[in-house]
Nucleic acid binder design. Structure first.
Length: 561
RNA sequence: GCGGAAUUAGCUCAGCUGGAUAGAGCGUCGGUCUACGAAACCGAAGGUCGCAGGUUCGACUCCUGCAUUCCGCGCCA
């Protein structure tokens, strides 16, 4: 609807250009807003104020000229000039309700567009190292990353979901040593417990399984424990498989599916790391100093240069990081979006600097990043800091066990990633209007219930029949609901463009409120037949949009609760 | 000290990339079930948008300082 109006206004501007009132029309399409105040119409435009100076006319005079130049159309009922020069448009009521037809016809596809045109985007998220169960921070990353992926798919992108992990570094070594110590019957309280060892009780389970010779099947590997507690390599392989399986289970419980698990070790095996170093050297961005090899990242906006190869010989972690992202580029992803915790903020400059240093024609702002802030968990009015199994942090599994997958996903994705999140367990558990996820799901179930009732009634009331009587829809609550339904495609497009899934959550809250208001104000099935069928069509359309929206968040849309 | 994020109603948060009288939910107060789902609805009260400048027709939004909170700042990952 916005686009239609923008086109009309552009046409009017073109006419004013030929009349010599304006020099040239602006490059960008006119900005169309939805005013908060209903008396300002359905849509408004600020173009007269924007162009007033260039036209050499007072904004209100220019506004008059624009309105007069507007071509004949069926979209706009009336238009007014208001305030300093706003154009306010009242849209024909029929246009608002026609969206019901479009929704029922398009179904699950309503809200989607082809902005991405099948281009490929990779979304990397979670990327937890296999040293323990996923914690709530990973959960936030999982919820945001998956929802982002769904939004991109809905807007025409081909999405590749990827999970990257370090399967060979010092942290993994600590993991192996911890398991070995547990296998030898030691506890974290013993004096010879490994330094920086992992203390959670899950380590004990791994040790027991290894000793018992169990076979572990994870999403990307299968390993059998040898039981030889002196063989650190065997323990390492087994422990990694165990923790990967643990995380697989967490992700499955959270309804997240990845297309690919990418191993850091593969970058060494394939020679990608060595090739990256060689390329950076060849491009002349490196130098030797104090027996180490440095990358001149300050050439690319970093505040100091970074070591690539340490004095003792190994590479620092950011070298494989650069190799990994070069690999992503070579795989042909036009866009790459990395969803990470904000504590990894400093890697952005380094990775981008490394990629620029390769002189491979990679754009400066590539890859894109979405960073989320910390999550704290509140229960019974106090912060929860410990988990039974993991010890030092609250796990994603804890949250899912406490409040369920739907509420966990909704709460973790409903806030802007940039703001710190307090997860209120008691609120997420509440089965009342305190709880937004149930509020939205209830709206969906309510629609489904009305539809069931209609289908079971002898009168033959169907949403399809209602499509011929949409003109019966007229009351304020009814129109408000129809208008909200019409916003959905804009919400999806904006949320995808800004990489902000929480827009969808907010929209659904508002849509559910509109549905409930409508429902309480007007009888549906007991109205006169034509009105009843039209309202039933509106309800069916609402159910569809709520289902589509919840789908973008990875939250279920129950038929009954 | 440097970099990033945040600061909006008692609480938790939105605010459509600069628009009109700053919005929700919870909580508080007051109403609505012989009713298609009351897990709902309707109404009321509640604000110096952290502070101070600047940019312009117009600032919660952009710029510059300052304050406070969180996160980074390793030849760890």
């Amino acid at each position: 609807m916005k686009a239609e109006l923008a086109a009309l206004i552009t046409e009017a501007l073109e006419k004013l250009v030929t009349e010599g009132v304006l020099g040239a029309i602006p490059d960008a399409p006119p900005q169309i807003d939805r005013p908060k105040d209903a008396s300002h119409g359905d849509l408004s435009c600020n173009i007269a104020m924007v162009l007033a100076k260039r036209a050499g006319l007072p904004p209100r005079d220019l506004a008059t000229r624009i309105i007069d130049a507007l071509p004949d159309n069926t979209l706009v009922d009336t238009s007014h000039i208001a305030g300093p020069g706003f154009l306010n448009f009242f849209i024909n009521a029929g246009h608002h309700t026609q969206v019901v037809k479009a929704i029922l016809k398009t179904g699950v596809g309503f809200g989607c567009c082809d902005e991405g045109a099948g281009r490929r985007v990779q979304v990397e998220f979670v990327s937890a190292n296999p040293t323990g169960p996923l914690h709530v921070g990973h959960g936030r990353g999982a919820a945001i990353g998956d929802s982002l992926s769904r939004l991109l798919e809905a807007t025409g992108w081909r999405v590749h979901r990827e999970f990257y992990y370090n399967d060979a570094g010092q942290q993994i070594n600590n993991l192996a040593l911890s398991v070995q110590a547990r296998a030898r019957g030691k506890t974290p309280y013993d004096p010879d417990w490994p330094k920086d060892g992992y203390q959670g009780s899950y380590i004990e389970e791994v040790a027991r399984a290894f000793a018992a010779g169990e076979t572990v099947e994870a999403a990307d590997r299968v390993i059998t424990g040898t039981g030889d507690i002196k063989d650190l390599d065997a323990i390492r392989d087994f422990a990694v498989a165990c923790l990967r399986r643990e995380q697989d289970q967490d992700l499955r419980a959270f309804q997240i599916v990845f297309d690919e698990y990418f191993l850091e070790s593969s970058l060494y095996d394939s020679g990608a790391v060595e090739n990256t170093v060689a390329a950076l050297r060849a491009a002349g961005h490196t130098y030797d100093e104090e027996e180490a090899l440095w990358l001149r990242t300050t050439d690319f906006g970093d505040d100091k240069d970074r070591v690539m190869r340490k004095r003792e010989g190994g590479y620092t972690y950011f070298v494989p990081d650069v190799a990994y992202h070069h690999n992503k580029w070579e795989r042909g992803f036009e866009r790459v979006i990395n969803e990470q915790g904000a504590d990894h903020h400093s890697t952005i400059t380094r990775v981008r600097a490394g990629l620029q240093g390769l002189d491979a024609g990679i754009p400066e702002g590539w890859p894109e990043y979405v960073l989320h802030q910390m999550v704290t968990v509140m229960r019974d009015g106090a912060e929860v800091k410990l988990s039974k199994r993991a010890g030092s942090y609250v796990t994603l599994r804890d949250l899912i066990d406490w409040v369920g997958c739907d509420a966990t996903r909704y709460f973790l994705v409903a806030r802007a990633p940039t703001s710190q999140l307090t997860f209120d367990v008691d609120l997420a558990l509440a089965r009342s209007n305190e709880n937004p996820v149930y509020y939205i799901q209830y709206a969906h179930a309510r629609c489904a219930s009305v539809m069931r009732k209609a289908a079971a009634t002898a009168g033959g009331l169907t949403p399809e029949a209602g499509l011929n009587h949409l003109s019966m829809l007229s009351e304020p609550e009814t129109m408000a609901l129809a208008i909200s339904l019409g916003r959905f495609p804009e919400v999806v497009a904006t949320a995808a463009a800004r990489l902000e899934p929480h827009d969808v959550a907010n929209y659904l809250r508002e849509l559910a409120a509109d549905l409930h208001s409508f429902y309480n104000a007007h009888k549906i099935l007991e109205a006169a037949p034509e009105t009843a069928s039209a309202r039933l069509a509106l309800v069916a359309a609402t159910r569809q949009v709520i289902a589509n929206g919840l789908g973008l968040l990875g939250v279920a849309a129950p038929e009954s609760m």
